[in-house]
């Protein structure tokens, strides 16, 4: 398995996209921190950029990469290797390189400017988001044979998690404005890893004081140790479940 990971990693590093992604994150992070006079404000701006860019790059790049490695996968499957090992090596190679890219691009600037609990939490969330969206991409890629369709599904999934989900939540909130929705909102927010990450970090910033009653309820939950543990647990599940489903599917796939 180590050997396959090695080949996947060298192949990804030879591909310039990950390098461009790293440089882009580096430039954005440093410029955001130097634009704002207050570092925690800078972190907030960076959070919004990261929550948009990291899932997008992770899901699109991984989907295309899996489709482009079809030959490589086919070659490996006819060799004395476990299918599970092939698939998980692909996953590890992708998450490894994208997480490293994120860590260098956004993690190092955050450590330089904001080396505190929120800063480290943001690095953790960013890496988890990379893992989650690689996992979702692999599930999308294994389900559809057609490349164009698979990439389309990946883009739609990103749109859903980044934009459509928020719209749905707003719609729900307006529809049920007369009912106490605050507690249910915590449950709903776990359905979207991006929202969960956003709430988790926002509530540990000073701006959370401006979020009103819902913010107070959220703070009650996400502010505590158990809340943070549960949220990270849910984020981990968001990574593990798609990979598990995709591996099961890949084990039975005809090549």
């Amino acid at each position: 398995m180590k050997k396959i990971i090695k080949y996947v990693m060298t192949d990804i590093l030879r591909n310039r996209i990950v390098l461009v992604y790293t440089v882009f994150l580096l430039v954005t992070s440093f410029s955001v921190f130097s634009l704002e006079d207050n570092n925690s404000k800078g972190l907030l701006s960076l959070l919004n950029i990261i929550l948009l860019i990291v899932p997008l790059v992770s899901i699109i790049f991984s989907t295309i990469y899996v489709y482009n490695s079809a030959e490589f996968i086919e070659l490996l499957v006819s060799q004395p290797l476990k299918r599970k090992a092939i698939w998980l090596s692909l996953f590890t190679g992708l998450t490894g390189s994208l997480s490293i890219a994120f860590f260098i691009g956004a993690g190092i600037p955050v450590i330089i400017y904001q080396a505190n609990a929120i800063g480290f939490m943001m690095i953790g969330v960013g890496i988890l988001l990379s893992v989650i969206f690689v996992a979702v991409a692999m599930l999308a890629a294994v389900q559809t044979r057609d490349k164009a369709k698979g990439i389309g599904v990946a883009i739609l999934l990103w749109l859903y998690f980044s934009i459509l989900f928020d719209g749905l939540v707003l719609f729900l909130l307006f529809q049920f404005a007369d009912y106490p929705m605050e507690k249910a909102m915590i449950g709903i927010s776990t359905l979207n890893p991006i929202d969960l990450s956003r709430i988790l970090i926002l509530l540990h910033m000073d701006v959370s004081a401006m979020m009103g009653y819902t913010g107070a309820i959220f703070k009650d939950f996400f502010g505590t140790g158990t809340g943070i543990t549960i949220s990270f647990g849910v984020l981990l599940l968001w990574g593990i479940v798609p990979v598990w489903l995709a591996t099961r599917k890949f084990n039975r796939k005809d090549l």
């Binding site: 192949d11 490695s69 006819s78």
Partner: peptide, 20 residues
């Protein structure tokens, strides 16, 4: 089972390899 493929040499109809 996958170990048995150690003893097989396979030449596909259309050999597809990583292009790079």
């Amino acid at each position: 089972n996958w170990q048995y493929r150690n003893q097989i040499g396979y030449m596909p109809q259309i050999g597809r390899y990583p292009e790079n």
